[in-house]
């Protein structure tokens, strides 16, 4: 058998070797696109990502992002010039809300990222090795889970001092136990799958089994949880901002904006309404998207 050398035959070989994956991907797309709520979630998440990516270049008043002062135009209602109205400094709320997607994005990614990076290895170790390792990890996890997350985060921020970085750090610290729980349960069931036992009878090392069999099969639940947590983390960070322990004005952060806007309710309703709407749509989007992913990626779902 000669090795393929021409680019065309290389391509054909790629197509053949990955025919299964390609078919599977098409099946995912098909299942996902059949659910209206999943598609709405996808749309909202995409809109959020697009605004994150190109926000600074499309906002009408880029200089308002970092707190420019235009007192002549303070607290203007929504109009053609200011679609979402202006704040007490005359800042364009549309601009500040769009720029706020960047803040929310990195808050969400950092919190879920740190939580997953800490939680997944611990969860796999607990579920796969079991025994004493599991007892120690799970008891520590239980301690964290026993305290309400936001309350614990509040305590941590109070100790570290307010600020968006401290807020994110505090939330990451309370976020990882959920990942340990999820992955531990998954690894526990995977450990007794026949293919893992078969790998052991071939003399496979723990590293091989973890890398080849356990981790790849944990990816689906992980992706689903991470997607849902993006929304929840953004909401939690906004809550910290709202009570003055997270982002500080004039940083364009949704929670902080609502906190100030609240004092201008109800007459200047647009000040808190639009940041609130963005939080609502973002959290809803990530939740629907995560739900859709779960229905699609569930390996037990039949192939219709």
């Amino acid at each position: 058998m000669s090795e393929a050398s021409l680019p065309a035959s290389r391509l054909a070989r790629f197509g053949m070797e990955h025919a299964g994956s390609i078919r599977q991907a098409r099946f995912f797309v098909w299942t996902f696109s059949r659910s209206p709520s999943a598609m709405l979630g996808l749309l909202l998440v995409l809109a959020f990502l697009v605004l994150t990516l190109i926000g600074p270049w499309i906002v009408p008043y880029p200089e308002h992002a970092r707190g420019a002062v235009d007192l002549a135009n303070r607290l203007q209602p929504p109009s053609a010039a200011h679609w979402f109205g202006t704040d007490e400094m005359g800042g364009d709320i549309l601009t500040r809300v769009i720029i706020g997607t960047r803040t929310s994005f990195w808050i969400g990614v950092t919190i879920t990222g740190i939580a997953a990076l800490v939680g997944v290895p611990l969860g796999i170790a607990a579920g796969y090795f079991g025994g004493r390792i599991r007892s120690v990890i799970m008891r520590i996890t239980d301690v964290f889970l026993a305290v309400p997350g936001l309350v614990l985060a509040l305590a941590i921020v109070a100790a570290l001092g307010p600020g968006i970085l401290h807020g994110v750090l505090a939330l990451a610290i309370v976020w990882w136990p959920g990942y340990v729980r999820l992955i531990e349960a998954k690894a526990l069931t995977l450990r007794s799958e026949s293919y893992v036992e078969a790998a052991r009878t071939m003399g496979a090392s723990h590293a091989h089994i973890l890398w080849r069999h356990i981790l790849p099969n944990c990816v689906s639940p992980l992706v689903v949880k991470a997607s849902m947590d993006m929304g929840m983390a953004i909401l939690a960070a906004a809550s910290l901002g709202f009570i003055g322990l997270g982002a500080k004005p004039p940083a364009p952060e949704w929670g902080a904006m609502i906190a100030i806007g609240r004092t201008y309710m109800p007459d200047w309703w647009w000040y808190s309404a639009f940041p609130g709407l963005f939080i609502f749509l973002t959290v809803l989007g990530f939740n629907l998207f995560g739900d859709g992913l779960r229905d699609t990626l569930d390996p037990r779902s039949s192939r219709g």
């Binding site: 098409r26 099946f27 299942t31 192939r303 219709g304």
Partner: peptide, 9 residues
């Protein structure tokens, strides 16, 4: 018939 991915079974 079952309507599914890749058509009707």
């Amino acid at each position: 018939a079952f309507d599914g991915f890749e058509g009707r079974v």
